[in-house]
Design a protein around this nucleic acid. Structure first.
Lengths: 226, 226
DNA sequence: CCCTCACCCTATGTATACACAGTGTATACC
DNA sequence: GGTATACACTGTGTATACATAGGGTGAGGG
């Protein structure tokens, strides 16, 4: 195609295909259960099938899609069972992060407060509550980023990997939760503030108590996924 | 890890390439740090480059190899730092499994005792102590399988996924540990028996104490990886 | 009206050809 | 003798052609 343009060759075609698809799934442009056709991604990402297929295998390993032999790539659904499991694992991994952060007196990034400011921006919140799909997907990503920051601060690369692998499932759950119960936003925001303060103060007990309440499956979402 | 199941299904070329490479790495036939050439796998697995490259991307996502752009696929090394992190994560995940198994009175598979019998088979142990690379790799796989069984028994599919993703790192560490300190075998075996009994008795405290001692990095291995 | 079966057609699985970057080596120069 | 540079070669990155399985659609029968 247009390889001859001499653009920054740093990004390979496979990487473009991967990022486009990953973003399309995370943003909700491609709904769960959709059979993702190679040709669609080829056209959208402007690459041939080979790098697209490589991206698909990577995305399958990362639980974004299921690769059904001779059927195609299906965007993964989150079942009710997986919802419970995801919260269970998030609690396990995040609490472990908290223990390290508090125990070793590791400081958490100062800009996290500004991140919460952006999440609570009235205009953004209004769009989310209005049901704007893009805004909801963006909110879910920011929520993940917030929690991920604590895990990242521990510096444990494997913990970071494990937690990262939860993102596809987190995204679906968070989108469902905010879509079905926009009122949750009013609960989430102050809990995030409490978490941040507790960790800044190295107050593990408060952090744990808050997180245990924060990571509780919403019955409305559960029944919706059943 | 399920090496013997499902021979009858129509296995794709990509799957053959994946399994051959995965097995070659786990068995130690391809040493860490090796640049894995696509052509080699093509010849060995009897497929063309396309499915091999797909397998490589999958293996990279699973942390078996690093894909260096324009350089190739390098079999991952385990650093000293990752050794500590791996033990830390194994402890976290396995203890969580133990809590569930004991708390919910879930029974663990009865055949695990026979699995330990096979691990302690004098002939096998002799080969491991003699430094037989295949026997050592096999021992490491059996060790992983033993610990994995507890995680599997919880039925939490995400926990199972997360633990599975530790296998590449576990394998390298276990092989190093047994190679450098064959004497460890005499410590490992009784600890495995203690763990199994504690879990059969739903005695979490003993299980936790034993596991905390069991999953302790060996200083010899640590300095070897540095 | 619903179910079944056969056909076609589309999308996947695989191989291969070509483009090009990175590495190694040999040669020339300092 | 050591270092720098140019060139060839090897192996990866990508596109594309071809084979084939699986599903959709239509007609025919119950």
């Amino acid at each position: 195609m247009d390889q001859s343009l001499g653009q920054s060759r740093a990004i390979t075609a496979g990487e473009r295909a991967y990022q486009w698809t990953r973003e399309a799934i995370l943003s909700g442009r491609i709904p769960e259960g959709t059979f993702l056709e190679e040709k669609l991604v080829c056209d959208e990402a402007g690459v041939s099938r080979t790098p697209v297929r490589e991206a698909f295998h990577r995305l399958a390993a990362e639980k974004f899609i299921d690769l059904l032999p001779r059927r195609g790539a299906q965007v993964r659904r989150v079942t009710a069972g997986e919802l419970f499991e995801t919260y269970e694992m998030r609690l396990l991994l995040e609490l472990h992060g908290f223990r390290i952060l508090c125990g070793k007196n590791i400081d958490i990034p100062a800009w996290l407060s500004e991140h919460l400011d952006r999440m609570e921006d009235p205009e953004r919140v209004a769009r989310v509550r209005a049901g704007d799909r893009d805004a909801i997907a963006e909110h879910a990503k920011m929520d993940f980023f917030f929690h991920f920051s604590f895990v990242k601060a521990t510096g444990n690369s494997i913990l970071i990997d494990l937690y990262t692998s939860l993102q596809p499932r987190h995204q679906r759950i968070a989108v469902s939760a905010v879509s079905l119960r926009p009122k949750r936003l009013e609960v989430i925001a102050p809990e995030h503030r409490t978490l941040l303060k507790a960790l800044t103060d190295h107050d593990y007990d408060t952090a744990e108590r808050t997180l245990r309440h924060h990571l509780r499956p919403d019955e409305t979402v559960v029944s919706h996924l059943r």
